[in-house]
Design a protein around this nucleic acid. Structure first.
Lengths: 121, 121
DNA sequence: GGAGTTCTTCGACGTACGTCGAAGGTGTGG
DNA sequence: CCACACCTTCGACGTACGTCGAAGAACTCC
């Protein structure tokens, strides 16, 4: 029997998370994975700062070249973090000429929050 | 010049997180670290399931030996995850005889949620 | 088309994480 | 004190992650 290396499953996270809140009883493993993957996308100091910067300019959007110096990191690193956030559905980027403007996806962040919140609902 | 290995700073997370919400503008790196560390504690499918199980029995508490079979993991692994949650202040355990009963710290979870929520406040 | 800017991808490096079996507490009851 | 149950710690294993420099893509303007 072939021994497959145990790697993380790939899951589509483009839509806001949608499942019963944590506090409403035992959560099934699939939902737990969905929640955990989105949390993991946010569970990094750089990405938390990124989200706060993007939320502050939610209307205009911010480009990589402005974010990199604000965080003291290379553009390659910032691009990597933005990708994590984008794949988790927490952020979206739109091209305008040579620039890509990133904006937070507020519904997605709100949905994640509602699942976690022990008071909400 | 000595090259110090770059390791993660150790931070006390026993009290519920307390800082301005993400959406209120650029967050400073220290606060971002505090938030990220707490999120990281929750950013694992097993720990999300653990929290949901504990929230379902918040009054009574649940012991490691009941959690391990419910998750299909060894007690060593569950103990490890509970430790992560405890160090993040999201859970607390009290000994009763040979058992340790774990309970969620609802205020801590709520505080984390309020920092993340783009709608809250 | 060519030079220049912005952004992403690739490869490599060190560190951190999840899991287990085995060993080490901690407490209960004969 | 000894046997037993529960829980945690330790050591080891493979995988995942954050960071960078360098190379590649996408686009603009001359």
């Amino acid at each position: 029997m072939a021994v497959v290396p145990k790697t993380l499953p790939v899951v589509d996270l483009s839509a806001p998370v949608c499942c019963a809140p944590l506090a409403s009883g035992a959560m099934d493993p699939g939902d737990a994975l969905e929640v955990a993957l989105r949390l993991k996308a946010l569970a990094d100091p750089v990405r938390v700062q990124l989200m706060s910067l993007l939320l502050a300019e939610a209307a205009a959007g911010v480009c990589t070249c402005d974010l990199a110096p604000a965080l003291g990191l290379t553009e390659a690193t910032v691009s990597h973090h933005l990708r994590q956030l984008r794949e988790a559905g927490l952020v979206e980027g739109t091209r305008k000429g040579t620039n890509v403007f990133y904006r937070p996806r507020i519904e997605a962040l709100g949905a994640l929050c509602r699942v976690i919140d022990p008071a909400c609902c």
